[in-house]
Amino acid sequence: MNTAPLILIALTTLATAAVAMAGRNLIHSALLLVASWAGIAAFYLWAAAEFVAFAQILIYVGGVSMVVLFAVLLTRNSRAELAISTDSFSRAIAALLAGGAVFGILVGAILRTPLTGSTRSPAAFNVRTLGLELMGTHAAALLIIGIILTVALLGAVVLAAPEPPEDAP
C-alpha cells in the first residue's frame, strides 16, 4: 500500500493542529483546526472508509467548526480580546513535558511492536452493508445514540439559555 499520500496527509494535519494549538488568535486557531479536520477526513478516504470521511466533513468541518466560531464570537468582550493574553510559562513547560513523555512512550511502544498488518481490500464493506448493519445488528445502539444526542442537545440549550429575571411572573 502506498504510504506517500499518508505521510503528506499526516504532516499537513499535524502541522495545522500544532499551529492552531500554539496560536494567539482564537479565530485563526478555529480556522486552522478546520484544515486539520479536513486532513483527517483525507486520511479516512486514504484508508477506504468513505462513509466516515464524509461524516467527518459534515460533522466537524461543517458543524463543529461553526459552533466553535459562534462560541468564539459570543464570548469576546472587545476586538482586542481575540488576541489571547500570554499563558503562563511554567504551565506551558509542564504541559510540554507531560505531552512529550506520553508521546515518547507511545512512539517507543509502536516502534518496538512488530505490526505487519494485512492489506486485504475492504471492498466488500460498502455503504449498503454499513446501513444494513446499523439497522440490523446495531439497531439498539443506533437508538441509544439518538437518545444521547437529543438529551445532550436539549441540555446544551438549557445551559446556554439566559436565566429569566427574578421578578418574572
Partner: peptide, 16 residues
C-alpha cells in the same frame, strides 16, 4: 505514529 502525534498535540494544548 500519526494518531499518537495528533493525540499529544491535543493533550499539550488542553493542558497548557
Amino acid at each position: 505514529l500519526f494518531s499518537s502525534g495528533l493525540f499529544c498535540i491535543g493533550l499539550i494544548g488542553a493542558l497548557s
